[in-house]
């Protein structure tokens, strides 16, 4: 076999190897997508059906428990509450948040096969983001208190004043300057 023929064969072998590897990556990506797809599908389906979750009164662990059919325009608070509670519980009471996953829906609308617990926790948040913009009318969300560089505490401002020689400006108010409606 000539040297040229050997080179060509080597090149062909490399190309064939690459082609063989690509489907492996494609398959792993496909596997990921195939795991995600049903969850996304479920979320989208629930959005379309206007199904949102509502926590049971006095029972934070049942956040994903009761499910109700409500019109989309009525669902703002009902959507937000589970998300806030989830975030709150997740950071402050991890044990309780974990417990929440095992709660079974008490009364209910037929729900498709539940997704894995970890993904189920994320579902309401995705639903909020994709289905509707949160209205600001009834919420007093936190905002930047203007462009002034406020000290966090009076004592800090006084300490800074000692250093800089500038007077302290103490803005005193009812309500909170970083509330949207103050």
């Amino acid at each position: 076999m000539s040297r040229r023929a050997i080179n060509i064969l080597s090149l062909l072998a490399i190309v064939a190897g690459t082609v063989a590897i690509v489907p492996v990556f494609a398959q792993s990506d496909g596997a990921k997508r195939s795991a995600e797809f049903p969850v996304k599908g479920l979320i989208n389906e629930r959005i379309n059906q206007n199904i949102v979750t509502q926590p049971s009164v006095g029972d934070k662990t049942a956040i994903l428990g009761a499910r109700h059919l409500v019109p989309a325009d009525m669902s703002k608070g009902r959507v937000e509450m589970p998300v806030r509670s989830l975030l709150f519980d997740k950071f402050k009471q991890p044990a309780e948040a974990t417990k929440a996953r095992s709660v079974v829906a008490p009364d209910s609308v037929a729900v498709p096969v539940p997704p894995p617990a970890e993904l189920r926790l994320k579902a309401p948040a995705k639903a909020v983001g994709s289905s509707q913009k949160p209205s600001l009318k009834n919420r007093n969300e936190k905002v930047e208190p203007g462009k002034v560089r406020w000290h966090k505490m009076v004592q800090t401002a006084m300490d800074a004043s000692k250093q800089s020689g500038k007077p302290v400006l103490l803005f005193q108010m009812m309500g909170h300057l970083d509330d949207r409606f103050c």
Binding site: H151, L170, F171, M173
Partner: peptide, 27 residues
């Protein structure tokens, strides 16, 4: 008012600003 560039600059340049709440605002 504190979102106004000129007001904020004046305050930032001349003061050590801090805000406090004396109580919740009635609604």
């Amino acid at each position: 008012m504190f979102s106004d560039e000129n007001v904020a600059k004046e305050i930032n340049d001349k003061f050590e600003p801090v805000w406090v709440s004396v109580r919740e605002v009635p609604t």
